[in-house]
């Protein structure tokens, strides 16, 4: 397509972008069209959700992590953010005959925290769990193919070293998603690490992050994938008291649809839902075992006053 300069000047940038992305967009979603809330409801029901293997967290999230939405997981080092991401990367592959999504995952690792050995452990536990559950013939058949090798081959790992690489990768992602239509989960672990270094201008960082947020949100909606972003914590001084709050500033907090904060409370690990359009704010206990992310042993739900 050749155009002269005046006709280019007459076009708005969005016409370009819609022209360029129109071919890529998946047929299920057309950006400019109005849908009624009823159609949206049906779409949401078709999408399903990803189980976390913690029944309490699943219950609090009304069935698991929503597909087509952006979820942010915040927490201090070592509290289990990456672990939950790894667990989700395996869980999304649960075969359809067991009520799973049987999909693939892209894992964007910025911290170098993707430890293959842990994935193997988690995957082994999941395979064991479902081979015990398999009763009818169909389920036994799927267990033939649902094994360690298939699980590992359905995880695509991207290692990004700084924020430029992360942004470049996100720009290329729509093409990747077109080639691999079975991808239903995008994990960015973590967004805080690349953006907390090499960026001196804070207002520029905020703008970059907001742009990234919009990009990720539109990808989640257009391609109907679940996006999980992890974030670090930082301290804020308020009334001469220090609070642990999610990093990257307050405006970044608007990026995610659901926000989960993982934290230690005494010797207990607690996951708190602090922002969600559909669930009330709750806190549940969990633990990290050698098999992965699980409920805490004592199933009492503690409601804590967090703020």
């Amino acid at each position: 397509m050749f155009l002269t300069l005046p006709s280019i000047l007459e076009k708005w940038p969005c016409q370009w972008s819609s022209g360029a992305s129109g071919r890529r967009a998946s047929p299920s979603f057309n950006a400019g069209e109005a849908v009624t809330a009823l159609e949206l409801l049906q779409r949401e029901r078709e999408c399903g959700s990803i189980t976390t293997f913690s029944s309490q967290l699943d219950h609090a999230l009304k069935g698991g992590l929503p597909v087509g939405k952006v979820t942010e997981i915040c927490g201090a080092p070592g509290v289990g953010k990456t672990h939950l991401c790894l667990q989700l990367s395996v869980d999304i592959q649960i075969p359809r005959s067991f009520g799973g999504l049987e999909a693939q995952v892209i894992f964007m690792d910025t911290e170098g925290s993707f430890v293959l050995q842990r994935v193997v452990d988690i995957a082994a536990a999941v395979v064991r769990h479902f081979s015990l559950l398999a009763v009818d013939g169909e389920q036994k058949d799927t267990m033939q193919t649902f094994n360690m090798e298939s699980i590992l081959s359905n995880i695509f790992l991207v290692r990004c070293h700084d924020y430029v690489e992360l942004q470049a990768e996100l720009l290329l992602l729509p093409d990747f998603l077109r080639d691999k239509p079975r991808v239903r989960l995008l994990v960015i672990d973590s967004v805080a690490f690349p953006f907390r270094q090499h960026l001196d201008d804070l207002s520029q960082r905020t703008r970059l992050l907001q742009g990234l947020a919009q990009q990720v949100i539109s990808m989640a909606t257009r391609h109907n994938i679940a996006v999980v972003i992890t974030n670090q914590m930082t301290t804020r001084l308020q009334d001469s008291q220090s609070h642990l709050v999610p990093a990257l500033g307050e405006i970044w907090g608007h990026a995610s649809t659901t926000r989960i904060i993982l934290q230690w409370e005494g010797s207990q690990q607690v996951a708190a839902i602090v922002k969600s359009p559909c669930c009330i704010d709750t806190a549940i206990q969990y633990q990290i075992t050698s098999e992965g992310f699980r409920d805490a042993n004592q199933p009492e739900i503690t409601l804590t006053n967090r703020r």
Binding site: G32, T36, A37, L41, Q214, Q215, S218
Partner: peptide, 13 residues
């Protein structure tokens, strides 16, 4: 629900 019409737009343009 049918009376609520939703547009999902993700950029300023």
């Amino acid at each position: 629900l049918q009376r609520i019409h939703v547009f999902r737009l993700f950029d300023a343009y």
